[in-house]
């Protein structure tokens, strides 16, 4: 009985899902055929063909995969750096009241500035090039990393700290064995939001200062009037974003088996 309703539910899910997708494609197609929309925008078929072709035929300097891997490399560098510094500073501020008192007011000045807003400054400071893009990505994820980690380190269950003290843990052991592990779920939340803003920052940076990469691909599509490149770029960006988020979620599941949190 349960099994039967389950499969019925699954069938419905697929049916409605496919239906929704088809309606979307139909509207797209109809808009291209019957309205002015078609003059600037490619039909689904043309877009798909262009997407597949982009894997073998270079656009600008690279094929689609080439652009994607360039963007990914940039994100990875900036994101790794911002995560490491963000976690260190966040833990420091969350754990030590003195560090919090010293760093937090200064941190508050840069915290609300979006990573993307650093683009003009970064260009003036560092010039156009890879380090500038890394810097922008760094700034994009940094404050979120700090805030989440700090939140985690501040929300350590005081009772658990007491337990550890009674069991004879020293100050540095309490940090490593209590504060750090209880911050990990918060750190992962930070890593997740920071990854999506990093991915966004790389696009913006590439749109403004680069000659290659996924962001360049879509802006060049606009500038050269080849909107299909734009569409290709967006599909690719969406897919990569999805893959990154999934990978990170799996890593979290692996590392935080003890949390009951499930999503």
């Amino acid at each position: 009985m349960i099994n039967k309703t389950f499969t019925k539910d699954m069938r419905e899910t697929w049916m409605y899902g496919i239906l929704g997708f088809l309606v979307f494609l139909l509207v797209w197609q109809a808009a291209c055929v019957f309205t002015n929309f078609g003059k600037i925008f490619p039909t689904p078929k043309v877009s798909l063909a262009a997407f597949l072709q982009a894997f073998v035929e270079p656009i600008g300097r690279h094929t689609l995969l080439g652009h994607i891997s360039i963007s990914l490399r940039r994100v990875l560098i900036g994101y790794t750096l911002s995560s490491i510094t963000g976690i260190i500073i966040g833990l420091l501020m969350g754990y030590s009241k003195l560090a919090h008192a010293i760093i937090y007011p200064i941190f508050c000045i840069i915290r609300p500035i979006p990573g993307i807003a650093w683009i003009p400054l970064a260009i003036l400071w560092i010039g156009i090039g890879e380090p500038t893009i890394h810097f922008i990505i760094f700034m994009g994820g940094f404050s979120q990393m700090v805030m989440n980690t700090m939140d985690g380190a501040q929300h350590v269950d005081t009772e658990l700290v007491g337990v550890a003290k009674v069991l004879g843990a020293k100050e540095n052991q309490i940090f490593r064995k209590i504060v750090l592990p209880s911050s990990i779920p918060y750190i992962f939340t930070g890593l997740q939001t920071s990854l999506s803003t990093s991915w966004m920052a790389v696009l913006a940076a590439e749109m403004i200062t680069a000659r290659e990469g996924a962001g360049w691909l879509i802006i060049a599509g606009m500038q050269t009037g080849r909107i299909e490149n734009n569409v290709i770029g967006m599909i690719a960006i969406g897919l990569v974003g999805l893959i990154l988020a999934t990978l990170l979620r799996n890593a979290e599941r692996r590392l935080c088996r003890w949390t009951v949190r499930s999503r």
Binding site: M200, A204, M222, V231, M234, I237
Partner: peptide, 13 residues
């Protein structure tokens, strides 16, 4: 999963 910034060129078009 498409970052909002990704929409900028299309919207400008």
């Amino acid at each position: 999963p498409i970052p909002p910034v990704g929409w900028v060129p299309i919207m400008i078009t």
